[in-house]
Each structure stands twice: as structure tokens, then as C-alpha cells.
Design a protein around this nucleic acid. Structure first.
Lengths: 220, 220
DNA sequence: ACCTGAACACCGTTCAAGT
DNA sequence: ACCTGAACACCGTTCAAGT
């Protein structure tokens, strides 16, 4: 097991709340990675026995749901009237991607765990409301809702993977052994896939999707 | 810790190879989930001590890379000349999504672990070759390469999450407590997001992306 | 070269007990 | 109501030893 910084026992030891626990859990994940989050380590960080946490969460799954809610608090939900509907949606999607950038170890939770708490329903509602305001009927709203969700989830994860060090991987990497003549197309494209280009690539994909949305909205 | 079927000790106990180990690992993941894959359980399944596996893989990370290669064997790579370039790409992307459907517990490996083995380079090469054949220069190929990768990765994960039971989640789910008047847009769209619609939704998103690719290809 | 077995430092969770 | 402490059934990996 790799790098895990010594856990700083909280001096304050304020009374435990779900919010404080989720906050500490996210801090631990941000610092040391998702695998480093354990009930024992989290307890230690909060100055408490691991089992104390079970008084606030039924188990680790519920704790992770609370961390997801904390993450989603950082997304800027579409607010009715603040801007034209599709602009609201785009801003929201861009803010969602920032969660991936700011919490590379935690973001994956948002892609493989279901959204099923009150606050996540609120997010869906604001998102779908903006799509309705843009003129999409429910079937079409469902399609663009999923398309955008797929895109921003996949982009977040892929960009994190591109940025991450992966010490446990099979040694031999694209950077170290240049593709050369065996992989000419890879060699030609690789320079355009550097980390510094990922923001522009993300926006390009959004352009493609929003172009289609504008056209679909104009058709009705 | 949930359901883990008793491990069937292999009768044959053929000599250990990387391929046989990766195969058994994938079978274990398919049956019981990614968290159920442990070196100990895998050893037992193969009729061998856990430590024997370390003679073939440096650690669990390398083993997971081998499982990824096994998964990617199920993708149908674009083959030059078999069809027009964009059709080749679309067929490949659709076959990639089938990996998610067929290996819901393992697919996530392909989204958060980097591709950095020979066989994954081969996949990149065939993919990018088809994009080059379609007429895209390297910068544009890079953009559509990522766009498609984001989409198919995100779609695979999201569809898996939609289909999966999640016993450790916070109880209260969209299906159980109908949104009603608090979430009217969710209520309107939810019927169109049922599992049986996910295939059509995936194809809709591909239509959007390939429409843009056709237009971009025509411009040169 | 390939595998074993004991050991080390971890996990999530149950359960009975304390205050 | 909230927390502790011991216990149970697990982890990945190191290391020395066997063949």
C-alpha cells in the first residue's frame, strides 16, 4: 500500500455530524486517494474510534453518498432566468467538469454510484427544467440529458486518467517508448493529446453537442 | 461484505500462465464484482496459493492491466478496407459499448486505468488510422478521438449504474418515492430513461457525434 | 523457475459494553 | 444517544524457505 500521509488528529474534535464526517472523508480522499478512505483512518482523523461513524452512517456506502452530495454542491446549478436556457446548461456542465479537476480522486464516485438522495434529485430537476425551457419535450430532453451526462462523466474520468501517475501499472508507457514506425497514427496524434490541450478538447466536444441542441431547439 | 459465491477450485489446475490467470480474474469479477477480486480468492480459484500469482504479475495493478487487455479483445477493431472509415469507427465504438453490457463489473477498469500496454497501443492505432482515412488531420482526429472516447466510456458507466442494484446506497430512490410535484421535470422525463430505452439513447448520441464528423470530413 | 507458508500491516462490520 | 474496544473474517504484499 502506497503513500499515506500520517493522519492529523483533529485538535478541535467538534461533535460529530454527517456533514463534518463527509467533509473530512472528502479531504482524506483528496489527499491520499479513494482507496485510502477507510472507516478507521477517517475515525482517527476525526479523533474518534471508527465505530463511532456507524452512528451517523449505516455503512461506508452511505458515507460515500454523503461525499457525493458534498461534491455536487460545487456544481453551479442552472438558475431559471439567469441566462438563456442552453447557456445555463452549458455553464452547469462546465462547472460539473471542474469537480473532476478539483477532486480527481473522488470524481469517480459520481460516475459509478447512482444518484439517489434528495440533493441529487434537485440537481436533476434544475438540469431538466433548463432543457424544458430550451423547448425540448420529455423524450428529447431525456436524450440530451443522457448525452451530456455521458460526455461530462467520461471526459472527467478520462482527463483524470491522463493526468494521473499510475505507479502500479505495467511498466511501458506511451511517453517512454515512442510509438515510432509501429504506431504511426498514434505518433502523429499524440502531440495533440497532451494535458495542456484537454481543456480545449473538452470545449470542442461541447461545441458539437450544443450545436446539435441548438438545431433541435430551432426545429420546434 | 456481500454475496460471494463459494470459490470453485479448478479441477484441472493447468500450469499457470498470465492469460489463464487474467481469464480467471475476469470470471471472478463477472461473477462477484470488482471488489471481490482478491489475490487470495483468485489463487484459490486456480488451485494455488495467492503468492504464486506474484510470479506472473508484479502485483495487482499488473493483473488488472491484463484483465483490461482481455476485455479489449472483445472490441472489434476497425479493419482497413472493410468498410468506409466512419462506418468502421462507428462499428468499433458500438462493439466497445458491448463490453460494458457484457462485463458490467469490469468495464470501469477501462475508464480509470490508463491504456499502456502493447495491445492497447494497437487499438489506438487502428482507431486513429480509421480517423485519418476519414480525412481528419491530427489535431481534428485528436478531438474526435477524445469526444468518442469520453462518450462511450461515460455511456458505459452510466448505463451500468442505471442497471445495477446498489444495496449499500442511502435508501430512498427515484423509483420508490415518485418525484411528484417537488420534481415535476424529473417526473416528466423519467419514463423515457428506463433501462429498455438506453440502447436507443446511446445510438441517438452517436448520431449527433457522427453527424458532426461527416460534416467536418466533407469540409476538406 | 515456480510455488508455499508464515508474517505484517491493514480492511469493514458485528456485538456487547460503557456513559 | 453516542461512543469504545475486542473480535471476526477478510485484504495486498514481503520475505525466507522449499522443490
Amino acid at each position: 500500500m502506497p503513500r499515506r500521509t500520517p493522519v492529523r488528529r483533529s485538535a478541535a474534535k467538534a461533535t460529530l455530524t454527517r456533514e463534518a464526517i463527509a467533509e473530512a472523508a472528502l479531504a482524506l480522499i483528496d489527499a491520499d486517494g479513494l482507496e485510502a478512505l477507510s472507516m478507521r483512518r477517517l475515525g482517527t482523523a476525526l479523533g474518534v474510534e471508527a465505530m463511532a461513524l456507524y452512528h451517523h452512517f449505516r455503512g461506508k456506502g452511505e458515507l460515500l453518498d454523503a461525499v457525493m452530495e458534498r461534491l455536487l454542491d460545487e456544481a453551479e446549478l442552472p438558475v431559471r432566468g439567469s441566462a438563456p436556457p442552453l447557456e445555463r446548461v452549458r455553464h452547469f456542465v462546465e462547472s460539473y467538469r471542474k469537480i473532476a479537476i478539483n477532486h480527481p480522486h473522488a470524481f469517480i464516485l459520481l460516475t459509478y454510484r447512482r444518484f439517489n438522495t434528495e440533493r441529487t434529485f434537485e440537481l436533476y430537476e434544475r438540469f431538466l427544467e433548463a432543457l424544458a425551457d430550451a423547448g425540448f419535450d420529455p423524450p428529447l430532453a431525456a436524450r440530451f440529458f443522457r448525452l451530456l451526462g455521458y460526455y461530462v462523466g467520461g471526459a472527467g474520468l478520462a482527463d483524470i486518467a491522463s493526468r494521473a501517475a499510475q505507479p502500479d501499472a505495467t511498466p511501458v508507457s506511451l511517453e517512454k517508448s515512442p510509438p515510432g514506425e509501429r504506431y504511426p497514427c498514434v505518433a502523429a496524434v499524440a502531440p495533440h493529446l497532451r494535458v495542456r490541450n484537454l481543456d480545449a478538447i473538452f470545449e470542442f466536444g461541447l461545441d458539437v453537442i450544443f450545436e446539435a441542441m441548438k438545431k433541435a431547439a430551432a426545429r420546434r
